[in-house]
């Protein structure tokens, strides 16, 4: 499985993204140091790397890059989307994922469809 190719000029946000704010990393990945608050939105053509609680909305692969991922040290979002395939968490997040390091990735299922999987990450 080829990892998501890091794009040139990764956008780096050095402060938390706050409610009502929206960031769009055009043509690149984005790294957010400090988390994404509820009510904030981060969009990238590449992958999204969130160090800190991801509580808002994250949309990766915005122009259709299905290899993009959403990676975070603390999974608690309202919505995640990769290349338009999205999932919301209105009914909560399962205990094995909530607040844990995790990533969202598109995986091909048996029928050839792409499904949006959320998988925990073993970081230590």
């Amino acid at each position: 499985m080829t990892p998501a190719a890091p794009a040139a000029n990764t956008m780096i946000i050095e402060r938390p993204l706050r409610s009502g704010q929206q960031i769009y990393a055009r043509g690149s990945d984005v790294v957010i140091l400090g988390g994404v608050s509820n009510g904030a939105e981060v969009i990238a053509d590449g992958s999204i790397h969130c160090y800190g609680p991801l509580r808002g909305r994250a949309l990766a692969g915005a122009q259709g890059n299905t290899a993009a991922r959403i990676i975070t040290t603390c999974f608690a979002p309202e919505l995640v989307s990769i290349a338009g395939v999205y999932r919301t968490f209105e009914r909560g997040i399962t205990a094995n994922l909530a607040g844990k390091p995790a990533h969202a990735v598109l995986r091909a299922s048996g029928s050839g469809q792409q499904t949006l999987n959320i998988e925990t990450l073993q970081l230590d």
Binding site: L17, R18, S19, G20, Q21, S37, N38, G39, A40
Partner: peptide, 8 residues
């Protein structure tokens, strides 16, 4: 939430 907004 409003405080978060004003911080932004």
């Amino acid at each position: 939430r409003d405080s978060d907004r004003i911080l932004g």
